[in-house]
């Protein structure tokens, strides 16, 4: 190792051993003051930053909600172009089917034939695709005798 030290002394003999670098003017004279300012800055709580930290979870939740809404609404709009109208139409159809099927047979006995037919014809108008006059006649023939009909008139 001693040889290495001697070697380097010979090899770098021509070199000035001092620093080849320099610093900006008055750098060391002003360093302590600049450092003091930076330490003071570090020790002061940053209000803007802390406010953001408090709001961060709320902002993230709002952003997630918007994202979920987008993920739901975009495919709906794409696959059901009529959107709300389509759903309303489906709702109407379901309601009309339900109202027809939910007419209780016992209630028919309290109506006159004319009232009954006019009520049924209203439903029929709504559901012309699903219920014909023949279907209705078949239904009455199957469930009520002529006596029942005449007696109630």
């Amino acid at each position: 190792m001693k040889k290495t030290d001697e070697n380097i002394e010979n090899w770098f003999g021509n070199l000035k051993k001092g620093q080849p670098f320099r610093v900006p003017e008055s750098y060391f004279e002003t360093f302590a003051d600049r450092l003091k300012v930076r330490i003071e800055e570090e020790e002061q709580p940053n209000k803007k930053r802390s406010l953001f930290i408090y709001l961060k979870p709320i902002l993230m939740m709002a952003a997630s909600f918007v994202l979920v809404m987008l993920l739901v609404s975009v495919p709906i709009k794409k696959f059901f172009p009529s959107g709300k109208g389509y759903i309303a139409q489906r709702q109407l159809n379901t309601d009309s089917i339900d109202s027809a099927s939910l007419i209780p047979a016992t209630l028919i006995s309290y109506f006159s034939e004319g009232q009954f037919l006019s009520a049924v014809s209203d439903v029929k108008e709504l559901e012309s695709d699903t219920l014909s006059t023949d279907n209705l006649a078949d239904y009455i023939a199957a469930n009520y005798s002529e006596y029942d009909i005449i007696a109630n008139n």
């Binding site: 021509n14 070199l15 000035k16 080849p20 670098f21 320099r22 610093v23 900006p24």
Partner: peptide, 8 residues
């Protein structure tokens, strides 16, 4: 801020 000569 490098002030050295060629050798340095």
């Amino acid at each position: 801020y490098f002030d050295g000569d060629e050798i340095q």
